[in-house]
Amino acid sequence: MSFFVIFMGAALVHNIILTQFLGICPFLGVSKKADQAIGMGAAVTFVIFLASLMAYCLNTYVLIPLNIEYLQTIAFILVIASLVQFVEMFLKKFSVGLYKSLGVFLPLITTNCAVLGTANNIVTKGFGLMETIIYSLGISIGFTLVMFVFATIRERLEIAPIARSFKGNPIALITAAIMALAFFGIGGLV
């Protein structure tokens, strides 16, 4: 039961994008088309899951025994950066279309605060191995869900009559505000 609570909390109540403000760059940058958003979501899910797992192991078995916790930021970001480079090489080889459409935002997964933020959260919350897996899955599913919903709304916004100055990112941010309001309400769920 408590695993369920962790999962729902991570995916909906403390949604990484709408309540923790992490991962906003891809949220705005790669959400113009639904399939792109799903591609990004899948890539981020993969990176968050593996990065959290590796960050947990690194922290528990290397950093804490050696008493060098102050290197956490550097160690975690190194793990994340290598993973992203790996995903980039993988996509370049096996899915050129997705690779091209994700463009500049692919290397930016490294600086997707969602990834480092999740790794940091896991360490500060003192999660065990099972909890780490559930939590990172919840976070990344929450991320993909919000990306997808947001992208479908934006597809509709393309054909809506919007004041010229608010087209593009400004209206997207205001849409995000309304979505955040909705997620505010989910807070009572868990």
Binding site: F21, S165, F166, I171, L173, I174, A176, A177, A180, F184
Partner: peptide, 21 residues
């Protein structure tokens, strides 16, 4: 809160765009 953050930034970005337009 989170809602206000998105709302403020969106409105300000719109105004910035208006000026440049």
């Amino acid at each position: 809160s989170a809602v206000g953050a998105f709302l403020t930034l969106g409105t300000l970005a719109g105004i910035a765009m208006l000026i440049s337009n």
